[in-house]
Amino acid sequence: MQVPLIDLRNIRKTYGEDKVPVHALRKIDLAIKNNEYVSIMGPSGSGKSTLMNIIGCLDTPTEGQYFLEGEEVHTMNDNTLARIRNRKIGFVFQTFNLLPRASALHNVELPLIYSGLPADERKKRAEKALEQVKLGHRKDHNPNELSGGQRQRVAIARALVNRPSLLLADEPTGNLDSETGEEIMELFDILHKKGNTILMVTHEEHVANHAHRIINILDGNIAQDRGVVKK
């Protein structure tokens, strides 16, 4: 049997244990296979961001086990988690989170710097990733010289440049107008067709519908896990 890409078992996350405990995640069991396209939905405060952070290795669960490609993430220290984020996960954020005073190219190069790639190879791969999101001609511009859609595409290029196992997008269209948002979603569709596994947090139904599977989170529990019937 194929090992799932993401395998969450009995995941709990509680904040402020000593005072008033807040149960962000109560008991999550979730498996996501390679090349799945999954949306996570839920109202604010439902725990979907916490789940996203745990899957993205930015946070660790209070309880439970998390296997990413068979590796036990829940036992890892800070440094190993940083390496996992670097090699296996590509983040796309709602607010883009680009370094404001660095060129698009440098922003895309950043993950490669942390994996210790030599400069010339780094540059080649970063340029290729920018071309993939159709921004090859704007590689020397700083983020403040780019439109919102272009910024998000730089962020996507940065997320893809280290060929991660998983693309994690947190409200990727939240700061964009609907037309640009739709362009970005089309880009995600293409990336999925090319074989990428995509996990996306959103609260917009039409964005979530781009995925093939939608998971609803409510009060720290998985309320619903369903497939999307494509028209």
Binding site: G56, L58, N79, A82, R83, R85, F91, N97, P111, Y114
Partner: peptide
């Protein structure tokens, strides 16, 4: 701080 957060998310270790 934000820059530090971005760098960490992308894979910078504490020591880096």
């Amino acid at each position: 701080q934000k820059e530090i957060g971005i760098r960490k998310a992308i894979g910078a270790t504490n020591s880096i």
